[in-house]
């Protein structure tokens, strides 16, 4: 039951994008189409899970002072593996994600989880935590990219409704990303605050 909580917290309560506001660079840059969003999310989840296992395994061997370089080497290894496999088996996705796959190395979510969680917890819980965070990140990317693609490009999952309206390009350009994320975080904060208020009144 505790493991389930560890998994679920990444999806909502501590969602990396909407609650912790981490890893915004790739989120802003690649959330132009749903396919990109899913691809980026899955690549990051793979890196998160892989690096979590190893960071957790070596957590008692690695001395405090050199832990960051060790974590980065582990993370970079998994990022390069993901990058190479993507290039080999999904060249189209690799091309549209471009620089942002190698840049997962510096994604704050990955190093953040290594530092805050898997360097202190046993492998099993680290995997669960990383999976939750990864899926939370992927879901956030899907929500953002679905809004941006359908509004800005008039397409979603292969359907095209650009005949119904002329899509505002604004939404798939950089300012549209900032606006979408800002409005979503605002909405989530509004509802959590309201919920908190109601709970407070009950007590």
């Amino acid at each position: 039951m505790k493991l389930l909580g560890e998994f679920l917290k990444g999806i909502w309560r501590e969602n990396p994008t909407f609650r912790m506001v981490l890893g915004l660079c790739p989120t802003l840059a690649v959330s132009t189409t749903i396919a990109n969003g899913i691809g980026m999310g899955l690549a990051a989840t793979f890196v998160l899970v892989g690096s979590s296992i190893f960071v957790s395994l070596v957590r008692n061997i690695v001395p405090e002072k050199v832990r960051i370089p060790c974590y980065i080497v582990i993370i970079a290894t998994f990022v390069t593996i993901a990058d190479l496999f993507m290039k080999a088996y999904s060249p189209a996705l690799s091309r549209s994600l471009g620089m942002f796959v190698p840049l997962i190395v510096v994604n704050c979510i990955v190093l953040g989880r290594a530092e805050a969680f898997s360097s202190k917890e046993p492998p099993m819980r680290s995997i669960i935590d990383a999976l939750g965070m990864g899926i939370g990140f992927t879901l956030a990317l899907i929500v953002i990219s679905a809004i941006r693609e359908s509004l800005g490009n008039g397409t979603a999952l292969g359907f095209s409704f650009s005949r119904v309206f002329e899509p505002p390009l604004f939404m798939i350009l950089a300012p549209g990303a900032l606006l979408t994320i800002g409005l979503l975080i605002g909405l989530i904060n509004y509802f959590t605050a309201k919920k908190g208020l109601r709970r407070g009144k009950k007590d």
């Binding site: 002329e166 505002p168 390009l169 604004f170 939404m171 350009l173 300012p175």
Partner: peptide, 8 residues
């Protein structure tokens, strides 16, 4: 600016 970016 919004219109300029959206429907250039």
């Amino acid at each position: 600016a919004f219109l300029m970016l959206s429907w250039p």
